[in-house]
Design a protein around this nucleic acid. Structure first.
Lengths: 234, 234
DNA sequence: CAGGAAATTGACGATTTTGTGACAGGTCAC
DNA sequence: GTGACCTGTCACAAAATCGTCAATTTCCTG
């Protein structure tokens, strides 16, 4: 249950206190004093969870949260907000922004650790930065490129993440609900049928480069990416 | 995705509101106004999930949660806490107690339904995920594939579940009623003859790949899957 | 060997699930 | 601004699957 946690907090004393407690709980903590630094660290280190103070000098916490949610690589990283008492409207804004939880200062270390545990438990591990290759189709998270042999494939952010997940978990059938969890993140509320639409868009992008049978429909269950054809004819 | 949900809430108005929303989402809701009643219902009905208000007359929600976690049979039933704003310390206790999630009042029906779905989903992966192999026939729930040696077999969802059940319970005779319970679910109302039809469809799919005698009819009793020939005679 | 119960089979309409095209908002770079 | 994406949701079309029935066939009993 140990995790890499990025702590974004401008007050040194509080930063120290929290870091000490998280360290004692077995987590590895990286700290940032402002949102800009935090943003860079997130991109570089892709932590498992971000503990985010709402009141920051410069870019606000809420703005940082928005940006993390806007970037497809960081979209699914859980965020826990730290808010001062009485900033009710901020909480609402934060939750709408896609924060997974919030905690009001002052809080007990015990509570903080418990919430982190709960949030992490909700999320399945995934997302590597390594390039993936499968049946002539290659995808590189770092450069954000997809290619079928020589020919490049252009995808929207969501289709890219969807394909990335499918390629890193091939052969297996994924229900629409699981795909929503893994690709969209479990804090979003979207219709399951939305998955169908994105699968269709992905198929449409893959078909002209000769990968039409790649994503298969398993009726009643979900979708599966497989190099093998769904049925071997004859 | 429909589930049996136990709602533990003492305030009639809220109880009504939540129950209505869950009902609309396709869940079957049983209600309890206090922890003692709830405890009895859990033991009798073993619901799929417990929605538990923290503030209850008599035994508190937290105490109920503790007892559910202490009992072997109820230990794995997911619990979602309903808390009022500001009951911070209770949340901590609840999460440490093993609640799977919590939601703060007031909440939107949509969010509640979404969280329930998420929790049930996480609980979903069962031990039924293991591949089965029997007499040259293999079935893998994870990839949703069936193959006789090299040759793939295509099945509809119901035939797939039927074959899965038969392969995990081979050499035993199952009555039509038992098969309906196990494969269709014990709540559906379908004719027993329907089982015959699906057995036939399954046989039809298995026969071209050399597994014709696999599913045997036991006249007057039901069906049996066996690698052994039906009769030793002749 | 006849009678009848039990099981198989083919057909068919109803239902469920998935594919598709369109559309209204929203975001972002210019 | 504004125009080029991207997204999530619909409504409808297309396809696959389901459950039931009635006609047959099989099999046991007496």
């Amino acid at each position: 249950m140990a995790a890499n946690i990025l702590l974004v907090e401008d007050e040194p004393a509080i930063q120290e206190l929290i870091a000490a407690n998280l360290g004692r709980a077995g987590h590895h903590v990286v700290r940032a004093g402002d949102a800009e630094t935090a943003q860079r660290i997130v991109r570089d280190a892709l932590p498992d969870l971000v503990l985010l103070d709402w009141m920051l000098p410069g870019m606000s916490g809420i703005e940082l949260a928005r940006r993390l949610r806007a970037d497809e690589r960081t979209r699914t990283i859980p965020i826990i907000m730290l808010t001062a008492r009485g900033e009710e409207q901020d909480k609402v804004a934060g939750l709408e922004m896609g924060a997974d939880d919030y905690i009001t200062k002052p809080f007990s270390p015990r509570e903080l650790v418990a919430r982190i545990k709960a949030v992490l438990r909700r999320r399945a591990p995934q997302a590597t930065e390594d390039p993936v290759e499968l049946g002539g189709l290659s995808l590189d998270p770092a450069t954000h490129r997809v290619a079928a042999g020589e020919r490049p494939v252009t995808l929207g952010p969501t289709e890219f993440r969807l394909l990335h997940f499918l390629m890193t978990h091939p052969e297996r059938v994924h229900s629409r609900a699981q795909l929503l969890d893994q690709v969209w993140g479990d804090h979003v509320f979207v219709e399951e049928r939305t998955v169908d639409v994105h699968v269709r868009r992905l198929r449409a992008a893959l078909e002209p480069v000769g990968h039409d049978g790649l994503i298969q429909t398993v009726r009643g269950s979900g979708y599966r990416l497989s190099a093998q054809p769904a049925v071997a004819g004859v």
